[in-house]
């Protein structure tokens, strides 16, 4: 049962990532692409959690934590750049 659920969840998250890539390429404006990147890192964290469940190890969860922190910081940095034309004033 857990095996089937893992495969279903993996397929859904991969489709979500494909939709994110679509919005990242097509997105008419800069904030759309930024939103797509923001969603992409959250989805990649879900993918890492699934990998941890699949391999029955928690080694990669620190990488997920790092992705969460750095993704947020990079989103804020690009937002500040688009808002003010500068990151650190």
């Amino acid at each position: 049962m857990l095996d089937t659920a893992l495969w279903i969840s993996l397929a859904l998250i991969l489709m979500a990532l494909a939709l994110n890539v679509y919005r990242l390429i097509v997105g008419p404006d800069m904030p759309d692409r930024l939103l797509a990147l923001d969603t992409m890192y959250v989805n990649s964290i879900a993918l890492i959690v699934l990998l941890g469940l699949w391999l029955n190890t928690k080694t990669y969860f620190e990488a997920a934590l790092l992705i969460a922190m750095l993704g947020f910081i990079s989103t804020v940095a690009v937002c500040k750049y688009l808002l003010r034309g500068d990151i650190i004033e």
Binding site: A5, I8, I13, A16, L19
Partner: peptide, 20 residues
């Protein structure tokens, strides 16, 4: 656990579908 996994995948997919 299987329910939470499938629900998580479905919600993630719905969010990205809305964004696309």
């Amino acid at each position: 656990i299987a329910f939470f996994l499938v629900a998580g995948g479905a919600f993630t997919f719905i969010g990205s579908l809305g964004m696309a």
